[in-house]
């Protein structure tokens, strides 16, 4: 349990002169579902992109399973971006094949079974699917990998409450026990029950890191309530 999956030490990231991550130190253990919570513009997506190896730190370091993000760690990381990177002309089966070709740890059967359960026709073209259905397809693809670190950037933003429930169940029943899931969102009340731990991030720094139940006990409120207190405008 004590293995560290993601670690940041003195992490800084600026876009030009604009600092976004300002000295972040954090360590995420294996086997947890962790919420990355913060208001818009606090640095959630940037942190996730740094962990996915899509951005490089301005200074400091970020380590996935003890190494800097590179081709090797990318095989360990399953990343759900905020926006789709699948093309509209693709059929659902094309997207499945794409993942199958790219990722050795992709479980094709599992993905197809989940799609069947949701009534998603594998022959449909992505552009003909609703926003919510497209998000479900992508989440299924991402969660069908046997990764060590799942990075889910706003996985429930565009879907209705019933689909949110399905997505949360998908996450709970699919992540491997020795892997860690990092979920960024500002829809805290919808996901807080699945979290082991949460990170509050503010102005590019960790404002609070705590096991969820410990915080509920200590402050006598939900994580959503606590978030509203901490970030009161």
């Amino acid at each position: 349990m004590s293995e560290t999956i993601l670690e940041a030490r003195g992490l800084f990231k600026s876009y030009g002169a604009e600092p976004v991550i300002r000295g972040m130190n954090v360590s995420l253990p294996a086997g947890r579902i962790i919420g990355l919570l913060g208001p818009n513009g606090s640095g959630k997506t940037t942190l996730i992109k740094l962990a996915a190896g899509l951005l490089t730190p301005t200074s400091g370091e970020i380590l996935v399973c003890g190494t800097e993000p590179d081709e090797k760690t990318r095989a360990l990381v399953s990343y759900l971006p905020e926006r789709t990177y699948l093309s509209g002309w693709m059929k659902v089966t094309d997207a499945v094949n794409y993942f199958s070709d790219f990722y050795a740890d992709f479980d094709r059967e599992r993905a197809l079974t989940m799609m069947m359960h949701l009534g998603i026709n594998p022959a449909s073209r992505l552009r003909t699917l609703s926003k919510g259905t497209k998000e479900k397809v992508q989440l299924i693809l991402v969660m069908s990998r046997r990764a060590r670190l799942y990075l889910l950037d706003e996985p429930i933003g565009g879907v209705d409450p019933a689909a949110r429930e399905y997505i949360l169940r998908t996450i709970i029943s699919n992540y491997a026990e020795n892997s860690t899931v990092l979920i960024s969102t500002h829809l805290i009340s919808d996901i807080e029950s699945v979290l082991d731990e949460f990170l509050f991030i503010r102005d590019g720094q960790i404002a609070m890191q705590s096991p969820a139940d410990e915080a509920r006990e200590k402050y006598g409120m939900s994580i959503d309530g606590l978030f509203r207190e901490v970030y009161r405008c």
Binding site: I33, D196, A212
Partner: peptide, 11 residues
């Protein structure tokens, strides 16, 4: 049970 209650398995 965790999936049914939509909570974390560790919880």
């Amino acid at each position: 049970l965790a999936a049914d209650a939509k909570v974390n398995p560790n919880t």
